[in-house]
Computed example of a mutant assay.
Amino acid sequence: MPKQDTKTFKLRPYAQADEDATIALWQATWQQTYPAIDFAARVPWWRERWRNELVPNAEIIIAEQSGKLAGFITIDADGYLDQLVVDPAHWGGDIATALISEAKRLSPAVITLLVNADNMRAIRFYARNGFVHTGDDVNPTSGRLVKRMEWKP
Rank of each mutant, 00 (worst) to 15 (best):
P88A: 03
D18Y: 04
L145N: 13
V132A: 15
L11K: 03
L81H: 07
D78S: 14
P44I: 11
W30H: 13
E59F: 13
A21Q: 12
K7R: 12
V115N: 04
K104N: 13
N119Y: 11
L25H: 02
V146A: 12
D118S: 14
Q27F: 03
G135L: 08
A109F: 07
D18S: 09
A109N: 15
E64G: 00
I73V: 15
S107C: 14
I73Y: 08
E64C: 06
V110Q: 15
A109Q: 14
A117E: 10
Q31N: 09
A122E: 03
K152F: 07
G93V: 03
V85E: 06
W26N: 02
L145S: 13
E48Y: 07
K10D: 05
D38M: 02
K104Y: 12
Q16V: 08
E102K: 15
T97M: 03
R51Y: 04
V146N: 13
A70K: 08
P35W: 05
P153Y: 06
G135K: 08
P13W: 03
A103S: 03
V146M: 12
V43E: 07
N116S: 00
K104L: 09
S142G: 05
R144I: 00
T112P: 03
V110L: 10
V132E: 08
A70S: 05
K10Y: 05
I111H: 04
D38I: 09
R51M: 06
Y34E: 00
M149V: 04
Q4A: 04
G79R: 12
P44R: 08
I111E: 08
G67Q: 05
A98K: 15
A24I: 07
K10R: 08
A117G: 02
I23Q: 07
R49F: 12
W91K: 10
R128L: 06
K3L: 13
R49S: 06
T74Q: 04
R49Y: 10
T33Y: 00
I61D: 05
V43S: 04
A127P: 00
K68D: 06
P140A: 07
Q31F: 08
W30C: 00
I60Y: 05
K147F: 12
K152P: 00
Y80P: 02
L11M: 09
N116F: 08
I60H: 09
E53Y: 02
L84S: 07
D82F: 08
F72H: 11
D5K: 14
N57T: 13
G67H: 01
Q83A: 14
T6Y: 15
A98V: 02
L25V: 11
D82G: 15
D118T: 10
R148M: 12
N129W: 09
D137Q: 03
E19F: 08
D118K: 13
R124P: 01
P56K: 09
I61Q: 09
N139E: 05
W26G: 01
D87V: 04
L114R: 14
A58V: 01
A36Y: 04
R144K: 15
E150N: 11
W50L: 07
A41G: 12
Y126G: 02
K3V: 03
P13I: 09
L69H: 09
K104H: 01
